[in-house]
Design a protein around this nucleic acid. Structure first.
Lengths: 146, 146
DNA sequence: TTAGGTAGTGTAATAACATAACGGTTTATG
DNA sequence: CATAAACCGTTATGTTATTACACTACCTAA
């Protein structure tokens, strides 16, 4: 379910090559922290984790790294909980659909079906709306917590 | 597109009767402010508007009223922008789908098609997920802004 | 090789969003 | 009128996110 760090790093490096950017220590550390946690984390959760090794880190450092990781499609943001999550479907381009458990706080990412994607595009088109990206977040109770 | 206040108030009163609650001045004022704005507003936007007539109002008052209005299905929250919006489809029960314009900031609410609804339920079911509610927010550029 | 541009960083300050906790008031109902 | 539930005001604080500015690191082309 969870991508290994090495694979994510590889993907990050590819992104960097294509965009004149660099996978710096800050960015790598934030990614590693998110991978290690196996849970969605808030920016301040990440900040706390960073501080255990580098006490002077401040919020903008985290938000900048998260921005990079989101642009590189390695991390998704969860709008309804203000958290961040490592992408679990790097293998193909996708828009995420998130299943957010209200009990344990875990979030499962599932790829949005092509059918759904088509429907969303269709409904946007009907309203003359130029669609750029979307957030689809389902809240409920996961299998484990039932 | 926008519901008239009278209709919303009527609907609020029906909700109150059924739930031993009251449409108090605070709640009515917050609703009226949202209706008047014709735009999504943040809680603090609403707070500022309230203060022009009642300078001592504080954040909890707004958040409480918003909670009531959301429970009564008169107002939707927009997770990705931390804003609130008067519901524009009171006529039938629905889960909202929101089209958020990145240029003008306006948000159009469209009813989620039954087809989409069915698909979402299906995908939740496949993953053993007990679905309670969802947020579907499409970001892009609206017709006016293109 | 060095000048200049872009990417990236550190830091302080603050903005923006949201809730906890408390004690008191209002309202409906028996 | 006694009671319980809903509602409110207020203080304080917690949480999330950004602005702004000065600086450093790195790449590339003259």
């Amino acid at each position: 379910m969870q991508q290994p760090l090495a694979y994510l790093v590889q993907s990050a490096e590819r992104y960097c090559e294509q965009n004149r950017q660099r996978l710096t220590p800050n960015r790598r550390d934030v990614l590693a922290i998110l991978v290690d946690s196996h849970m969605p984390m808030s920016a301040y959760d990440i900040l706390d984790a960073m501080r255990s090794k580098q006490p002077s880190v401040k919020p903008p450092t985290i938000y900048r790294a998260l921005k990079f990781l989101q642009d590189a499609k390695l991390v998704h943001s969860i709008e309804s909980t203000n958290q961040f999550l490592v992408c679990s479907h790097l293998e193909h381009p996708h828009q995420p659909q998130l299943l957010v458990c209200q009990v344990c706080g875990r979030v499962e990412e599932i790829p949005l079906s092509e059918h759904m994607q088509a429907h969303l595009n269709e409904s946007a088109k009907e309203h003359g709306f130029h669609l750029i990206h979307h957030a689809i977040e389902l809240h409920g109770i996961c299998q484990n917590c039932q």
